[in-house]
Every structure is written in C-alpha cells, then in structure tokens.
C-alpha cells in the first residue's frame, strides 16, 4: 500500500503555480496529513513554463526529489501541452485537470481521468484577471478529495486579504461546484 500521493502543477511564470502548490499544501496540512510543496526553479520569467509540486502522506515526508510519477496533474495553460509533455509519468488511475475552453485534442494516456475546465473564464469573472491558480485549486479539491474546500478557503484567506481574498475564494468555490457536477 503506497500512502504517498503526488501532484505536479504545470504553468507559466506569472500564473501563480508556486502559490497554488503552497496553498494546497497548507490546506492539506490543516486537514491532518503531512504535506510538502516546492517549486522547480528555473528561468523565472513571465510566460516561461514552470512546475511546482505537492506531496501528501499520512507520515512525515522525507523524499526531496522532483515529482516524476504524479497521481495528480494540474495544467494551468493548455498551450503548454504542445511544448511540454504534461502527462509524463502520470500514474494509472491518475487525475489530470486542464484549464481549457475547448475539448482536449492531445492524446491522453490510458487509465487517466482528464477533467477540463474553463478556469480562465471563471477567473476573469471573479477576479477580472486571467490568473487561474485559485480557480484550479477549487477544481483540484473537488476532483481529488485531497483537500477540503473549507480548508482551502482558509488557506486563500491566509495568503490574500480583504476583497482580493473573497474574490479568490469565490473563484475557487465556483470551480469546485463545476467539477463536482461533472464528477
């Protein structure tokens, strides 16, 4: 029985992938599991492909390598799919959440569940900016069950303040509800 679960987030510099990883880890820890979040630091330019990782386990996490066989993948920007093999190493039975307004045309590995979501529209509606990290966190909470929506809202409010926090919470909630409908 493998208790370790791993998430890999693909995004572009400026989309808040590292923040997403951190807040997911905070919410998971609040839910009583050990968690670890870290970025794959590279060229930290806006628009460049970036990755961030989260691990969840029932016991203390010692492993420090990057995530090669994720149980979960979040793709913040579907234009990455032509540049980066976002599905690389995904486990059988894994869940992949892709931000896209169109059906996914890329070949999906067998045994993998893909959830597509127009996170950009949800983010634009709630935040007036196309920054999708908090929206996709809500989708991840619904799709994976690794984190509780309440804990996620608390983590978001711990990072942002005032109106900004509430707008991000609203975006996460909307995505959560949307994914719960299709799941």
């Amino acid at each position: 029985m493998i208790s370790l679960r791993e998430l890999r987030i693909h995004g572009r510099g400026g989309q808040g992938s590292v923040t997403a990883a951190e807040l997911i880890a905070v919410a998971a820890f609040a839910g009583g599991v050990y968690s670890q979040a870290f970025p794959a630091f590279g060229v930290e330019r806006r628009g460049a492909p970036v990755q961030a990782f989260v691990r969840f386990d029932d016991k203390k996490i010692r492993l420090r390598s990057q995530v090669y066989d994720p149980d979960y993948i979040i793709v913040q920007d579907s234009t990455l799919i032509s540049d980066v093999n976002v599905f690389q190493g995904v486990r059988d039975g894994g869940i992949v959440i892709v931000n896209t307004e169109k059906p996914l045309r890329a070949p999906v590995p067998p045994g993998v569940k893909v959830i597509t979501l127009d996170a950009t529209s949800i983010a634009l509606k709630n935040l007036s900016v196309p920054i999708t990290n908090t929206t996709l966190m809500g989708a991840f909470a619904a799709a994976s069950g690794e984190i509780d929506l309440g804990a996620l809202e608390k983590a978001i409010r711990g990072r942002f303040t005032g109106e900004m926090a509430e707008k991000n919470v609203a975006a996460a909630r909307e995505a959560y509800a949307r994914v719960k409908e299709v799941a």
Partner: peptide, 10 residues
C-alpha cells in the same frame, strides 16, 4: 537552497 529554503513543510 531551494530544496529546503523554498519548501513548505510542517
């Protein structure tokens, strides 16, 4: 550096 300094963990 990064591996610990930039990692969130309990």
């Amino acid at each position: 550096g990064y591996i610990l300094s930039h990692t969130y963990e309990p």
